[in-house]
Design a protein around this nucleic acid. Structure first.
Lengths: 141, 141
DNA sequence: ATGGCCGGTTACCGCAACGGAACCGGCGCT
DNA sequence: AGCGCCGGTTCCGTTGCGGTAACCGGCCAT
């Protein structure tokens, strides 16, 4: 997490993310409360994938832009697990170059209010939790 | 999880749990939707500890009754992490036999609505998720 | 002196999640 | 012939959460 540019393959930022509303450049930024929040939906990246898809379908490489901290392997694992659970659909178009689109299902969309609640909790109470943690570390030192 | 009686030390069920409203005998029962739900608050057991404490303070051994699937080591780790984060307080009384009480802080209580939301999601949508998973397994076989 | 109760601790270990780096196939472009 | 794009896969290594089993110290009752 110290060097978010060290992903294995470089991510082309051109031609990507122009079809829909822009996404945050790095959802896993340490500044973003959602990345530190003590809640998880499914696996580590599931919640953030839902966030990336709530505005509409996106392609694999498009997901890698806001989620640049996730390697293609882990992203592919996450997406397949979510497809298996009926949270999203994978649609491959037989074109060239190949195009694959991931879209939330209605079931996947039911997670959004939960993520909203978690985000609201973090905005309100996470500073307090982190302060308590720092205070405890101070006592231990 | 196949044999919940195989914990290291036996849990005395007498003299325990009589001070407050009774708790579910086994919160981690596979029948309980909360145990399968794809949400987590903090570590694996944090959410269930909050559930056990929302009715009032409880002692270490009292927590082990509804959470019989958790070993004392992991429970102690969970409780210390929650104390560090300001979610609960630990109060040791200098008596004999020793008595230690864990109680939620106001911050810890703010998690309850989130757990309620997660529980409601599970009750409504978890069957659909599990059905999708089973259907996918059927296709793979 | 043996055992029980309470609230843990210690040592050890297995597994799944996570991560890094490299590679792949099909096609089109130059 | 070589390169790039897209959407991944494969191999390997690490990390850390969680679990198992055993033990501890103080006190009291039998």
């Amino acid at each position: 997490m110290t060097d978010s540019t060290s992903t294995s393959t470089s991510i082309p930022t051109s031609t990507v993310g122009a079809r829909l509303a822009p996404l945050a450049p790095d959802m896993f930024d340490a500044v973003c409360p959602s990345s530190v929040m003590p809640f998880r939906v499914g696996d580590k990246w599931t919640g953030m994938v839902v966030r990336c898809l709530e505005g509409g379908p996106r392609r694999f490489t498009e997901l890698r832009v806001p989620l640049r901290a996730v390697t293609p392997k882990v992203l592919s694992e996450t997406l397949r697990a979510m497809e298996r659970d009926g949270l999203l659909t994978r649609t491959a178009y037989d074109e060239n170059p190949p195009r694959v689109e991931y879209a939330l299902t209605p079931l996947g969309r039911t997670l959004i209010p939960l993520l909203d609640a978690a985000r609201a909790w973090s905005a309100t109470h996470l500073p307090q939790l982190l302060a308590a943690r720092r205070a405890h570390e101070r006592d231990a030192s």
